[in-house]
Design a binder for these strands. Structure first.
Lengths: 213, 213
DNA sequence: TCCATTTTCTAACTAACATTAGATAGAAAT
DNA sequence: ATTTCTATCTAATGTTAGTTAGAAAATGGA
């Protein structure tokens, strides 16, 4: 399985032997994630997706009830992938890991997922603002769950004195996630490795860009 | 003129007496900026815009040659407004102003423009990734011009020793602008003033969220 | 007030798009 | 080999969206 296109299969692989419909469904989701990510929801036609998946448009309806159902699934996979990545990387740290180490790991996991491992998460972040409102409402709880991981991390930082006082943690969280998420708009593979971006982002988040005043 | 909807008029006001077509054109652009910002380019129909501007759809063609021409104008106005705001606020500083003060002013001007003064700039930032490629290519030079202001600011910071060494200024710039720009996705007026967001963003950019290690 | 110009409207067009229904082909089970 | 089920296709539908052309209404100047 192609690591760059981790997505549907990573979440729901039945085993080595896969039903034909599951394989096709995965192909469709992969194509959808990529094209939604590039062109947005509204400008992506079902024919674009079908072509990329090697089907005719109407065949998509065997696997998904509607365009909305398809995009909702892409969004769920996208959020789930980054949530699992960050959570699992954090869980691998020793129990006495510092806030700085935890933040570093979370930033790396987030950006790895977003910028190199999968189209789903970047599709999620790029199009969530423009999918139909009912779709967005349905996937919102999952996104909030992901936000809670970061909120918990910042809370830990505050309790251990590693995060400066006086700041609104909610606002801080939004700024941090914004810093990371906007990378989907400008990052181009090839010029710099994701790890370099993650390093610089971590440094900026933790210590800013300035020298001591 | 409504300050919240600064846009076309702010850039091209002829004087107190305005031709009818200029007034209508402005109404159309204002409506377009708002709706493109909310719904994206592809999901916004010309009928949505016409309704909001108080015209019938086909009348838009008297003022703009196409949907593409209309969105291109919105993008230009959006970028121009934030560019002028940041540049003019920086120009008002004393010649010996510190890097910290300059950065603070630039962040405030950027976020003021983006989050409260006009729909155009936030429309620009939210939809630039999804407009037709030829439109994006045509407005790209103007966006680069805006980026150069920030690059110059960071260069100044580096030269004066106010920006830590060893970092790639281009990457730093993208992360900073990303932090600011993503606020269009999450900021909701009413909960917190823009100035509070700008203060926190400035603090994070300059000194990070951490306490001294 | 009249007339030329400007601005908007109506009517129509074409292509595109999401979706449906039934037919067909492929795959699996017996 | 046959039957049943699964998966995809073809053909069609209805709606919508961007656009065009000409008619009608509004505006402004003399």
């Amino acid at each position: 399985m192609d690591i760059v296109k981790r997505g549907a299969a990573a979440l729901g692989a039945i085993g080595t032997v896969q039903k034909k419909s599951a394989a096709t469904r995965e192909r469709v989701l992969d194509a959808a994630a990529r094209i939604f990510r590039e062109h947005g929801y509204a400008a992506t036609t079902l024919n674009d997706i079908a072509d990329a998946a090697g089907l005719k448009t109407a065949s998509l309806y065997y696997h998904f009830g509607s365009k909305e159902e398809l995009v909702e699934e892409v969004l769920r996979i996208g959020t789930t992938l980054v949530l699992e990545a960050v959570k699992s990387r954090l869980a691998q740290l020793p129990a006495d890991a510092s806030f700085r180490d935890r933040l570093k790991v979370a930033v790396h996991a987030h950006l790895d997922t977003l910028l190199s491992l999968t189209d789903y998460t970047s599709a999620d972040i790029r199009i969530i603002g423009q999918v139909p409102a009912d779709v967005r409402a349905r996937v919102w709880p999952l996104r909030e769950e992901y936000g809670e991981i970061w909120q918990g991390l910042l809370q830990f930082g505050k309790q251990t004195g590693a995060v400066r006082t006086g700041a609104d943690l909610g606002l801080m969280r939004m700024l941090i996630l914004g810093t990371l998420n906007y990378a989907t708009e400008w990052y181009k593979p090839g010029r710099k490795p994701v790890s370099a971006v993650a390093e610089e982002a971590t440094a900026m988040i933790l210590g800013g860009i300035g020298t001591a005043p």
